[in-house]
Each structure stands twice: as structure tokens, then as C-alpha cells.
Design a protein around this nucleic acid. Sequence first.
RNA 1: UCCGGCGUAGCUCAGUGGUAGAGCAGCCGGCUGUUAACCGGCUGGUCGCUGGUUCGAGCCCAGCCGCCGGAGCCA
Length: 484
Amino acid sequence: MEAEALPSSSVGQRGSQDGFMDRQLIKHVLKRRDWGARVTVCGWVRTRRDSKGGFSFIELNDGSCLANLQVLADGSLPNYAADVPRLHPGAAIRVAGELRASPGSGQALELFARELVVFGFCEPADYPLQKQRISFERLREVAHLRPRTNTFGAVLRVRNTLARATHNFFQSNDFYYLNTPIITASDCEGAGEMFQVTTLDLDALPRTPEGRIDYAQDFFGKKTGLTVSGQLEGETYACALGRIYTFGPTFRAENSNTRRHLAEFWMIEPEAAFFDLDDNAALAEAYLKHLFAAVLDECGEDLTFFNDRIDKTLLDTLNTLRASHFSRMTYSEAVACLEKSGRAFEFPVAWGAELQSEHERYLAEEHCKGPVIVTDYPATIKPFYMRLSDDARTVAAMDVLVPGVGEIIGGSQREERLDVITARMNASGLQVEDYGWFLDLRRFGSVPHAGFGLGFERMVQFCTGMQNIRDVIPFPRVPKWAEF
RNA sequence: UCCGGCGUAGCUCAGUGGUAGAGCAGCCGGCUGUUAACCGGCUGGUCGCUGGUUCGAGCCCAGCCGCCGGAGCCA
């Protein structure tokens, strides 16, 4: 092989004319078939296999896709003997070379290295990610390194596609992206416990003459916390601009220890004026199906990986759902269905009681065998802001239940009648004066409107088959865990 | 928070009262256009912590800590 001089790539040096354009991402390189072309890639070594014939195979991954690029490094490299034997999993390198058809069976092409530069070696004795299988539980303890694994790289790529598809869907349906506050004094009733935000000295709390904590001296002059929902603020913009959606972090200080709860998670909350419950359900269904289609169309390689390694039914499920019609039933119909099921549930089924997890699971996983939208819940088990129906027993609530994950969406048509909502607030023991601005929406030009909240991580779970929600968010926050 | 399970080598796990084991990883050697590479050897442990029972505890008991699953709360 003739030693042809290649222009030295500038990564890690200054003064490049082309900037980042002078090296390629592996996902693009893997599609090329222009043998002999000069290519420069940068990435992390996944594994190395040596031939005593004087050359080595290096599996290189740069995160741009699941697949690795096979690099062939041989003795014509001046630093072959010095550097290549030290390239253990995790080492970071740049390779410039020529594309070649691979004679081996596992890959169509390989990069024959003409230049190999090591950015950083990776000592195997200390590096947690070796070639052996590692449990997800263990990987949570090395959350700064787990994105270098196949699974977590794939999760992030799917998550990214879901985020982009969320914006695409709402933007193309004329919803405005609205940023609602992270710190708020309004507690969206029924949504959960709030994390308190304060600058008060906890060792020397100021007190009022009555002995209570004097929040007038706190940073905001009142008691504040991290948002549990942007809904109330979202309604204000929906009742002005028509259609909005939020997509931001949400915080719940519940001591929830399950595979589908986080203390910090991301939620998408569309809110639309002139929408009734049926519009709301139609929006939810269209949105979910848009997301299924997006990951199927854009994340095929990653979904195939999840289908092979995590959940054998994933691709079938998503393909079926993208073109399906979601089941719909009222709460009353759901109760009747559960009663007729002949199942011995741990918790009794009765009209007026909450649907338990086992009930929701039966409806989604066995009766409907797919997503189901349950509507018109008893007013007594839902928050004050949901619209009271004419029967005065139910509210225009809606939950979307999906197999495996459970409740992925909760929403409602909002109560737009001032007299009705104040009566319900009083009945719930809420101080009407605390919600003045919220009630103004019902006082001035009130309109029917509706919205819902979708738990983003639950959607990522559903689209990847990942069992534990802590593995679909980069840095999970749960009780007793806030590392990284 | 409640119920259940688990905690042993860097990782994944076996070991049910009598001198701590395997596979993988690592290191050394061999072999090979390899691809979860393979073959031989070597290295590697305060058995989560504290206390108790016992001649003797990884194993039995109690408390604590942590993790996992289920429930509740919810997205």
C-alpha cells in the first residue's frame, strides 16, 4: 500500500479553514460506497480486535448512529506499535483514511487508516464500561458514562426525535410554543406536592408575630415552589392567542418509588381555546400517532435494536398504532366493562371510585389491546378546573392509557363558567382569592377551552420499550438520588 | 410511605452452619481478515453496615443503609 500523504486534519489544533466540515459523522460515512475516498472521523473506541498478521480492527462509534465504523489499522501507521495496542474501549481517536469495501461479513465498508491520532487513552482497569454486559441499575451509577453504551445512545436519539416531532406537530397545527414559569406561587391543585424554593436561612427562619414563617421576607415575598404544571399559566395564553403548548421541566416532590415516576420530568401541555373534550381527545390521538410515525420513520436502526434487545413486540406495536384508531370509552362504560370482565381485582370496581392501576392495565392491555381514551370521570375524583357536565355527576376529563406504561396523558375541557368554577373551588376548600388572575379568564371574555399534559419520559418509555423511566432521562432525579 | 425481593471479585452471578467459587473484564503467552473472536496461564474478596446466636456465620436472628419490583400519588 503506497503511503499517500493526506492533509492532516485540524481537530484538536487551531487554524482550520474548514472548521468542523473537515470530518464526517459515522452515520453519513456508513452510507457511502465511493471506495478510495478520503474520510476523517472522530469517535470513541468500542472494541479492538488484533491480528498478529500485524493489523487491528477498531470499532469506532461517534454517537451519530447505533452502528460502529470498522477501522482497519495496520503497521504502515507510524504509531501503530506505540498506540494501537493501547486503544481499549472508551479511547478517543481521530482517523483519516480511505473508504474500502470490506471483505468481512459483518459490514459493507471499512476505513483504512492512513493517520490515527489519539485524543485520550482509556485505562481499562478503571473504566466501568467494558465489553461485558452491564445492568441498567449499575449504569445509573455511572450516568456520566452510560451515554457511551448502545442502549443509552439509542434512547437519547429516540428522545431527540420525539422532542423535534412534538414541536413539528404543534407548530404545523398552529400552536405557539409557550414558556411557563419554573418558579411559581400557584399550586395546580391535585397535581402533587411542590418542591419549595426559598432563600431564607433554614437555620434561622424569620417568624411573624403569630409564630408562622414570615414569607414576606423570602426572595419573592411569598411562598414559592417549582412548578407542578404550566396549565394555569398556559390557559392565559390560550385565552388570548388561541392555541399554545408548553414543553418544559416539571417537578413533583412526591415520595414515589416506581419505574414510571420521576421527581423532575418533562411535560408537554397543549391548551387550546374553542376546543371541547372531543377536540381535545382528537388532538391527543393525532399527536401520539404523529410521534409513533416520527420514530418509526427516523429511528429505524435504534428501534430495531430495542425490538431485538428490550421488547420483541415494539415494532409491531408502533406500526399498528400509527394507523390505528384509539379506543374510547366513558368512565361509566369502563366501570361496566370491568364489572363484566369476571376478573377478581384486588381493588373493588365501583362507580365513583378511582380506577386503580390494575383496572387501567386491564382496559389498555387486555380489553382494548392498545391505547384507550377514558372520558367523563366522576366530578368527585377530579380537580375543580375540569368542566362540570350537564348531568352534574361527571366532568369533561380524559385520560389516555397505554399498555405497559399506564396513564400517559391526563387532560380535560376546562370549566369556563365563573359561577360553576367558584362553587367547585369553595366545595374543595380552596381560597377563591388565591386564584384571582385565573378566574379573570372566566370573567372577561370566557371561552370554552381544553388541554392536556403528556409525560415526555413515559412517551420515551413507550417508544423504546425501556422498563424503567430512570433510563429514558439523562440524569434522573428520584427520592434519595440527585447525583450528577 | 406500605408490601415483597435483593446486597458475595472491576462487572454478571453461584454458594442454605465447617478453610470464598465460576464466567466475563484485566495482565502474560498462543492463534486468527477479525467482528459477543478463540485457546492456555495469572491476578483479583473487610461476603452492604452494626450488633446478636453458635465451638464455628457469606449462610440463622435484629436494627440500619442502599437498590429493584409491586402498591399509593400521578405524567
